[in-house]
Simulated assay, not measured.
Amino acid sequence: MSNAVQCTGSNAPDPQRGDELQSSPDMHSGLPKACQFIFFKLGLCSLYPRKITVADLLSINSLSLTNNQPRTDSELWRYFVNKLMMLDVKCRYVRCEHAKEECTIRSANEDDFFSFGEEINESADEKTHIHPMDVHMAVFHCTDDFARERFISKLSACQFALPLLVPNLSTGQIEVPLYALQQIKKIWASNSQTGTEQHVSEYILSSHVRVVSFIRVGTSKISKSQIMNYILNDNKHPAYFSRHCDGNTKTRLLLDGVAEISWYCPGGSKDCIFQECVSLINLHGDANKHPGQLEFIQRISSVIVVLLPEDPREPEIVESVKRLQETQIPLIFLFSGVEHVTSSSDNRIAAKNRNDAELKREIVSKVTCVLHKQNDVQSLESHIDTAIKSGLITTTER
């Protein structure tokens, strides 16, 4: 690509040199500094925003990338795109291949056997690799409308969750890749009122499908994304990237505030956890910090599953729960720090030290109970149209 710049070697900025990063002529002042650094490391400086075209994606797809793994950060996004275009589900786990050190194992010194060097954690964090979903989202922010449609269609073919709500990095405005999502088709089997099995093939955004949303309030040691992966397919194929996925790091910047969507499409078997197609939305990050996304989710959801921190009695958490309960939306609360709830009939679920299968069964049972009581279902497309007209969100298309 002729308009790409190389941000490697001597041209790559040092994270400690904030002044140089801020004054770079290649970057846009509207981007947060931390985000600028990611684009520098990936070599995407001149491609933000929205400068990657379909032709660029296809040219990357035609490249003969002989190495199994990229050797520099600036190669990461090309390898990611190349594998995604080939529908390689391992595309999200691409990372730099550094020289391997000789494997040696020695007996630990008895004097410092129980010392693990906690005091040097900061230097270790500085050398960590780029989070896979930062690569994923950086490419998304750099694609134009037509490339974005191709990008999302490939994500869908790989059975990955799709970006639904994406904060604009420069303006903070909540955007929806509407046209790209309108092209996504899903197939599922459902049972009619007469008991006969019906196979449905529809553009999923215009289909009347119930929405189950998952949000987190505060912080938690439990992974909400992993719970959702277990609900979808017993975590056999992670639609959502969780902290337990290969390549995860503590430094994740571009995914916070993003709401991803996937669909549970039943096959007609009695073993299916839902007998109708259900949309599953995952809001990444603390919902308190993303009020616009939370408002949209409250508008469209049939039920919201709320993951609470280990100590839910903190004043900020208590106030957040009260605000959520003031709405008319059915809520199910997952308590990260509770091992047992006395009553099994209310909307609280203990999530601490729970067997994955048991936790999944209890969540699905309560969600299904709520869904069975609801008859009025609108399409997600109509909800999005209403939110756009009210100014809450906007489309990414130009």
Rank of each mutant, 00 (worst) to 15 (best):
residue 36 Q to M: 15
residue 36 Q to N: 14
residue 36 Q to L: 14
residue 36 Q to W: 09
residue 36 Q to D: 14
residue 37 F to T: 08
residue 37 F to S: 11
residue 38 I to K: 06
residue 38 I to R: 09
residue 38 I to M: 04
residue 39 F to P: 02
residue 39 F to A: 01
residue 39 F to H: 04
residue 40 F to H: 10
residue 40 F to P: 05
residue 40 F to A: 08
residue 40 F to Q: 05
residue 41 K to E: 12
residue 41 K to R: 15
residue 41 K to N: 10
residue 41 K to L: 11
residue 41 K to V: 07
residue 42 L to Q: 01
residue 42 L to S: 00
residue 43 G to A: 01
residue 44 L to G: 01
residue 44 L to Q: 00
residue 44 L to N: 00
residue 45 C to I: 06
residue 45 C to R: 10
residue 45 C to H: 07
residue 45 C to Y: 03
residue 45 C to G: 10
residue 46 S to K: 13
residue 46 S to E: 10
residue 46 S to T: 12
residue 46 S to P: 04
residue 46 S to Q: 12
residue 46 S to I: 05
residue 47 L to D: 05
residue 47 L to P: 03
residue 48 Y to A: 02
residue 48 Y to W: 10
residue 48 Y to V: 02
residue 49 P to A: 09
residue 49 P to D: 07
residue 49 P to V: 06
residue 49 P to E: 09
residue 49 P to H: 05
residue 49 P to W: 06
residue 50 R to G: 02
residue 50 R to S: 08
residue 51 K to W: 05
residue 51 K to F: 05
residue 51 K to P: 03
residue 52 I to V: 09
residue 52 I to G: 01
residue 52 I to P: 01
residue 52 I to Y: 03
residue 52 I to E: 04
residue 53 T to M: 00
residue 53 T to K: 07
residue 53 T to N: 02
residue 53 T to L: 05
residue 54 V to C: 06
residue 54 V to S: 09
residue 54 V to L: 07
residue 54 V to H: 06
residue 55 A to P: 07
residue 55 A to T: 15
residue 55 A to G: 13
residue 55 A to Q: 15
residue 55 A to S: 15
residue 55 A to E: 15
residue 55 A to H: 14
residue 56 D to I: 04
residue 56 D to E: 06
residue 57 L to I: 04
residue 58 L to V: 15
residue 58 L to Y: 11
residue 58 L to E: 14
residue 58 L to N: 11
residue 59 S to T: 10
residue 59 S to M: 05
residue 59 S to W: 06
residue 59 S to Y: 08
residue 59 S to N: 11
residue 59 S to E: 11
residue 59 S to C: 08
residue 60 I to Q: 01
residue 60 I to V: 11
residue 60 I to D: 02
residue 60 I to T: 07
residue 60 I to R: 04
residue 60 I to N: 02
residue 60 I to H: 02
residue 60 I to W: 04
residue 61 N to P: 06
residue 61 N to D: 11
residue 61 N to E: 14
residue 61 N to V: 06
residue 61 N to A: 13
residue 62 S to Y: 09
residue 62 S to M: 12
residue 62 S to W: 08
residue 62 S to L: 09
residue 62 S to F: 09
residue 62 S to D: 12
residue 62 S to K: 13
residue 62 S to E: 15
residue 63 L to T: 07
residue 63 L to V: 03
residue 63 L to C: 10
residue 64 S to V: 12
residue 65 L to E: 05
residue 65 L to F: 06
residue 66 T to I: 15
residue 66 T to A: 14
residue 66 T to Q: 13
residue 66 T to D: 13
residue 67 N to W: 03
residue 67 N to D: 15
residue 67 N to I: 00
residue 67 N to G: 07
residue 68 N to M: 14
residue 68 N to H: 15
residue 69 Q to H: 14
residue 69 Q to C: 12
residue 70 P to T: 04
residue 70 P to L: 01
residue 70 P to G: 03
residue 70 P to H: 00
residue 70 P to D: 04
residue 71 R to A: 11
residue 71 R to V: 10
residue 71 R to H: 11
residue 71 R to K: 13
